[in-house]
């Protein structure tokens, strides 16, 4: 195991983040915080409690998930896309590192960054709405698994992307809509039955539901289903990454 290489990649990626704190940290935290200020405080005061939880507090887990998903995907994709784009990837390909180590370095850094942001949003939310976390261990588990899974998704996108546009497309056109329709701002129980069924096809629903359960003990689907689903996503991503590396697809000619 080339631990030094994992450390080098991880450090390199984290430096990239902290070099631009305004863009990488402050901006996403502020923009996400605006959601619970506007939705929670302004609109929430006119919405009745959902299963005993105030609306402002209800949306916090979903907002943290949204942050984790978008940040994981964009960090994971950019980290590997950029060296491909500039050509510096030659060094990675010629270094005595295994693919597993490369993934650990890049995905580890992307997941770390999105978790930091998620926690910052959580802390900020604490100033505006009353929070309680009933199952902190599960909360941490969901946080880590989701960050890892979607950093892997990002990594895959970064390898497959042929240009900047494709790199932006998936987060904007896939992740964002899925998050909005995945019960971030509402419980799917309020939807007509047909839409409830359709919503069950949305993977993000399981993440938001499970994460919210770890806060308030309420969920759209059973928490065990949420855990199984995220396990399946993670396994699928690992499978795809494994295939990419075995074949060298889009990395080596």
């Amino acid at each position: 195991m080339n631990l030094e290489a994992i450390r080098a990649i991880y450090k390199f990626e984290m430096n990239r983040t902290f070099r631009t704190p305004l863009q990488s940290i402050i901006a996403p935290v502020i923009s996400t915080s605006l959601y619970f200020v506007v939705f929670g405080a302004a609109i929430g005061s006119r919405i009745t409690e959902i299963e005993g939880v105030s609306y402002g507090a209800f949306i916090v887990p979903g907002l943290i998930m949204m942050m984790i998903l978008t940040q994981s995907v964009s960090n994971g994709s950019f980290g590997i896309y950029f060296p491909k784009f500039t050509g510096t990837i030659y060094e990675l390909l010629s270094a005595p590192v295994s693919y597993f180590e490369v993934v650990l370095g890049y995905v580890g850094a992307a997941a770390t960054k999105s978790m930091i942001l998620g926690i910052l949003v959580l802390l900020t939310a604490g100033f505006f709405v009353p929070l309680r976390i009933e199952h902190p261990v599960f909360m941490a588990l969901f946080l880590v698994l989701t960050a890892l899974t979607f950093s892997l998704v990002g990594f895959i996108i970064g390898i497959l992307a042929k240009g900047m546009e494709q790199l932006q497309t998936v987060p904007l056109l896939v992740i964002m809509p899925l998050t909005f329709l995945g019960g971030t701002f509402y419980s799917i129980n309020v939807l007509p039955e047909i839409w409830q069924t359709i919503s069950l096809a949305n993977p993000v629903l399981y993440l938001v539901s499970g994460f919210r359960w770890s806060f308030y003990g309420i969920s759209d689907v059973d928490v065990s289903v949420s855990l199984v689903m995220i396990g399946i996503f993670l396994a699928a991503c690992i499978g795809v990454v494994g295939w990419i590396f075995r074949t060298g697809y889009r990395l080596k000619s």
């Binding site: 290489a5 450390r7 060094e91 270094a95 590192v97």
Partner: peptide, 10 residues
């Protein structure tokens, strides 16, 4: 320094 790390050296 990054290059050195990538090649597994302390």
């Amino acid at each position: 320094s990054h290059s050195r790390g990538l090649f597994g050296l302390k």
